[in-house]
Simulated assay, not measured.
Amino acid sequence: MREQFHALVRTITQALSGQPLDGGLQAWLNQTHGPGSDWFQQMQATCEAGVREGWLCKHEADGIRYGRVIRPSLETYGFSVDVVDMDDVAGPHHIHPTGEVDLIMPLAPDARFDGSPAGWKVYPPGSAHRPTVRQGRALVLYLLPEGRIEFTRT
């Protein structure tokens, strides 16, 4: 499963390489790699298996299971990869110095991440939020350019 996870990550990070992190990218990702796509279904199944097998979301704090799976490298076109498992909870506020690309994989039918259902959510460089899952449980895969994230006290 880990090999499949890495292959799926390489596919998406290659597609993201050099692209501006904006609404256009979000729309493109949802159209080409969204919930109806084979890629999305394979990634969600792989992430669910990784959580069950214990190699994803190994750590826990404040009701959130999480873990950095891949550090930024040439293989991932400079993106780090984190996966979190959240169930009706808000995470710590943070800033995205270089942006953030999130894949939302609901485990409960009505689960929403920052108000969005299954699919992609793109945050541009300099944006900030308190990641929140409501209406059930969801896995969220975070792609961070250069692995950059700044946690705040807000």
Rank of each mutant, 00 (worst) to 15 (best):
Q41A: 11
L74R: 11
Q41G: 05
I12D: 10
M86V: 04
G126I: 10
G136C: 14
P97E: 03
Y123L: 11
A61S: 03
L21T: 09
L143G: 02
M86R: 02
G18F: 10
P117N: 12
R68Q: 12
I95D: 04
Q19W: 14
L21P: 04
L144S: 04
Y123E: 09
G147H: 01
G34H: 14
I64T: 01
V9Y: 03
M105E: 00
G115L: 05
L141A: 06
E75K: 08
Q14E: 10
E146I: 05
F113T: 10
V83N: 00
W55Q: 02
D82T: 11
I95C: 10
T132K: 14
K58E: 07
T13K: 03
M86H: 00
C47D: 04
H59P: 01
M1D: 08
Y77R: 15
H129N: 11
S17R: 12
K58F: 07
A27N: 15
S80W: 00
V133W: 07
Y142I: 03
L143K: 00
G36H: 06
L144P: 00
T98P: 13
L21C: 04
E3G: 12
I64H: 03
L21E: 09
F151S: 14
L56C: 14
V140W: 03
H94F: 05
G36W: 05
G126K: 11
D114Y: 15
C47Q: 02
P106V: 08
Q4K: 14
R68P: 04
A15P: 15
S17P: 04
P131D: 03
I12C: 09
W39R: 07
D22A: 13
Y77C: 15
V69N: 01
S116I: 13
W28P: 09
P145R: 08
P145S: 12
V89M: 01
G78I: 06
L56V: 10
R153M: 12
A49L: 12
C57A: 03
V9D: 02
Q19A: 15
R153F: 10
R137G: 13
H59A: 06
